[in-house]
């Protein structure tokens, strides 16, 4: 029943994606592809934090794992779909390792540990620079098809991957396991009494959440045609967390909101700063930072005013409007 519904939604999404990519100009298609890559990661993190109540500041690092695997696979074998698959598998393995540790930790301790993971990423690339080539990073080579503009192809690939991720995760959410995840989040003791294996549920949640993050990272590498540690800084992890909080914790639709904001807001602030400042010095300082400041402020305000996120705000408002109508 729900499976059918999800299939129909995914098919509609696919048709929509195809139609849209034909219409958009190349730059917008590239942005769409970026949004799709972020969506994989935000959707994964939504599952973990929203549904299972575990926080992770390490999803940026998981994306890096996917991205570097992508680079190795592309430069070694060169089959795009195989590379994406390998990136997911590698990230799944790393996610399982972190997940085992995470299942024993709570709240601030887990946040601190995953923060340390995020900060260790550049160190890994420098320490093992024969493999990762330090800060310069690695190129990601591929042969684009001749029949399509490259951005359209990128948008179709990334968008298709994101749709697949959303389809699979939506089914996880509505499955028995999804209920177990929520039960563990709401009350571990009660969940245990209800016969749920808490630790196993938590590890598995981490794994399920890591795989799409790895895919998202691989897609980012595919889009940038290059991978370097700078792209996977702590800020990226904070971005992802922000995206899911603003979108609405535990809500896959919220993950879409979040991914959209991650692409749209920097774009908006960039055109804003270009518009208002004459001095290149000031423009350089504002560039990027303004978006970050707005993100940070939004994150704080949303947590204080609407902890349910944008999605819940939309729901609340539409609910109120409907109620208002009934009154009249």
């Amino acid at each position: 029943m729900t499976l059918q519904k999800h299939l129909i939604f995914t098919a509609l999404g696919g048709i929509f994606l195809f139609a849209v990519t034909q219409q958009l100009e190349p730059f917008r298609n590239y942005q769409l592809a970026t949004m799709a890559a972020y969506l994989c990661a935000t959707a994964g993190l939504t599952i973990l934090t929203g549904l299972n109540g575990q926080i992770s500041l390490g999803h940026g690092a998981l994306m890096a794992v996917g991205a570097y695997t992508m680079a190795f696979a592309q430069n070694g074998i060169g089959n795009l779909y195989l590379s994406l698959l390998l990136a997911m598998l590698a990230t799944t393995a790393v996610g399982a390792i972190i997940g085992v540790a995470a299942a024993r930790l709570r709240g601030p301790y887990l946040a601190g540990l995953t923060l340390a993971v995020a900060l260790a990423i550049p160190a890994f690339t420098v320490t093992f620079d024969g493999l990762f080539n330090s800060e310069q990073g690695l190129p990601v080579s591929f042969t684009p098809p001749e029949t399509l503009p490259i951005e359209t192809w990128q948008a179709l690939t990334a968008g298709g991957s994101a749709l697949l991720v959303m389809f699979l995760l939506a089914n996880v959410v509505s499955s028995r396991f999804g209920r177990a995840m929520r039960a563990v989040r709401d009350n571990e003791v009660a969940a245990r009494l209800a016969g749920i294996h808490v630790a196993r549920t938590q590890v598995l949640s981490f794994v399920i959440s890591a795989a799409p993050a790895g895919l998202g990272g691989a897609l980012l590498a595919f889009l940038a045609q290059n991978v370097s540690p700078g792209a996977f800084s702590l800020t990226l992890s904070l971005y992802l967390l922000l995206a899911i909080v603003i979108g609405g914790l535990g809500n896959l639709a919220g993950a879409v909101w979040g991914a959209f904001l991650l692409v749209a807001l920097p774009d908006l602030t960039n055109s804003l700063t270009e518009g208002i400042t004459a001095s290149p010095e000031l423009a350089r300082k504002l560039d990027g930072n303004l978006a970050l400041a707005i993100f940070g402020l939004t994150l704080i305000v949303v947590m204080l005013v609407a902890p349910g996120g944008l999605q819940s705000l939309v729901q609340r408002i539409s609910h109120r409007i409907r109620k208002g109508r009934n009154h009249v």
Binding site: L57, G107, L238, L286, G296, L299, I300
Partner: peptide
Amino acid sequence: ANPLNEVIVALGLVLFIQAVLGML
């Protein structure tokens, strides 16, 4: 209500403060 709330707000402060310093 949720023990993660304080952590998330603090991280929002991190983004905000660092960005403001970068702007200044």
